[in-house]
Design a binder for these strands. Structure first.
Lengths: 209, 209
DNA sequence: AGCAGACCGTACCGTACGGTACGGTTCGGC
DNA sequence: GCCGAACCGTACCGTACGGTACGGTCTGCT
């Protein structure tokens, strides 16, 4: 078994390997330290030798873990049929609530912390992976909805990228940074729903046709 | 010399100590690793023993460095005399440009990366310091301006906190996260000015009276 | 039964780094 | 000139952790 392919998808991995990556993920969430090769081996009840055979080195394991988690988050498509203002608003709010609840989750915070730490050590790959599967994936997911809204005469903007970034800013604001910096921010269902509703209304004020 | 007081202000430190902290800061900016006690001692041409006498331990040095940098960023007051729509717009844009250029600077990125890394290791203090002197200081700085704008009948909002967070979101959007994750984002004077102008216009659309 | 490969567990190595100890030098006070 | 405090430079210690080696076990194949 060579040290694993360049990209990791669900079926690139054996069940045992998924166990290992889930172990690494759980250790990561429990606190940035603790994620040592010995720790992962113990948690997954496997030998360090196997770890190195499968993942090459520590960075390989980390990369695989991040990709593995990214692969878990599958997008929910939004059908652009029968788009009126109300369904567009619902789609935007659903997207926003999902975005905020993911961002506020333990796993997202831990993963972003790890990737950010590595970005400060000329190991740019983890950050790129997180960006690609986080922020950029979100853009690819929402922009078709925005463009559908424009085609239906409900929204007005030049570039969907700019419109998306505005919506992103209105929804996320300073929340992610504060969470990453360790602030214990209470974000229940109701707060999230209220914040997203406000953001959506503001977005309509700015970009409504 | 006891291991330094709890809070660090400009005159708590001797010039030699400031040299040491600047050395630590430069090492930090040059790459998250490299910031070792030996490295700081060598860069500052001092002995490790002195480092430990002054700052207690590595965390003490890091904390002092972060506080020292925070103390450097002094706020520019905005006079709320003769406030009309144009001067308010100018004040908001000046604030926004400053915010974005600081956030995009090497020092801010490095400091936030450090604090975020530590937040993932139950060392919450660095994150708290960065939050206090970054995000929260910005709020304390801008909210009086917003309230002055409301008093002058130019703006309309319930809570200045919410209004501030909206402006923050409109200005920063995903920029800080992308920088922290290692994306090489070109942010020149002109892009910043244009982004902030757009954000300010959007803010007036949302909160203009 | 015998063999090969995958894997577990553990012991081990090398190194990097936090922290300490100590001799040597500079400098201010007397 | 003498003393002590502060400090530099370097050597040193302990430990944690990445990475390797190796013996033992299980499984599947012939």
């Amino acid at each position: 078994m060579t040290p694993l392919a360049l990209t990791i998808s669900d079926d690139t991995l054996s069940d045992r390997q998924k166990d290992v990556l889930n172990a690494a993920l759980s250790l990561l969430v429990e606190g940035g330290d603790g994620l040592t090769m010995t720790g992962v081996a113990r948690r997954a009840s496997c030998s360090k030798e196997t770890l190195y055979k499968w993942f090459g080195d520590r960075d390989g394991l980390l990369t695989a873990t991040v990709q593995w988690q990214a692969a878990k988050v599958r997008m929910v498509a939004v059908d652009r049929e029968t788009l009126d203002k109300r369904t567009l608003a619902l789609a935007l709010e659903k997207f926003g609530r999902n975005l905020l609840s993911v961002l506020a989750g333990d796993v997202s915070v831990a993963l972003n912390r790890l990737a950010i730490s590595h970005a400060g050590q000329e190991k740019r790959n983890l950050g790129a992976i997180v960006l690609e599967n986080g922020r950029f994936a979100m853009g690819k997911r929402l922009k078709p909805v925005l463009e559908a809204g424009r085609d239906a005469g409900l929204l007005s903007f030049e570039e969907s990228e700019t419109a998306f970034r505005t919506y992103y800013g209105l929804v996320v604001r300073d929340v992610q940074l504060r969470l990453l910096l360790g602030e214990h921010l209470e974000l229940g269902e109701t707060e999230i729903a209220a914040d997203v509703k406000r953001a959506r209304e503001q977005f309509f004020t700015l970009y409504g046709a």
